[in-house]
């Protein structure tokens, strides 16, 4: 059973390399049971998506002042 610390590292590595089948199973098992780590994965997915839409480089995504 993975610890949250190990899970955090795997979530990050999944963005940089293909995880092995055992790693993927361990990861999904942990995420299914751990709200903190499943929030963490959503946060890290969001970070990657946010940078893809970084306003200076994106074409048509003009943020508005609020």
């Amino acid at each position: 059973m993975l610890s949250c610390k190990e899970t955090s590292q795997l979530i990050s590595q999944a963005q940089d390399r293909e995880l092995g089948i055992v790693e993927r199973m361990q990861l999904e098992l942990h995420l299914a049971m751990c709200k903190g780590c499943s929030n963490l994965r959503k946060q890290m997915d969001f970070l990657r998506g946010a940078i893809r839409r970084y306003p200076s480089t994106a074409d048509d995504d003009t943020p508005v002042d609020r």
């Binding site: 949250c4 610390k5 780590c37 946010a50 995504d61 943020p63 002042d65």
Partner: peptide, 29 residues
């Protein structure tokens, strides 16, 4: 993390709701 490498209650990653909304706000950037 606690000694067993699980999140401490204070550090547990939170639910950011609909974070996509933030991307449209200049202040967020």
């Amino acid at each position: 993390f606690k000694a067993n490498e699980h999140w401490t209650p204070a550090a547990r990653p939170t639910d950011w709701g609909d974070p996509e909304d933030a991307l449209r706000e200049q202040q967020f950037w």
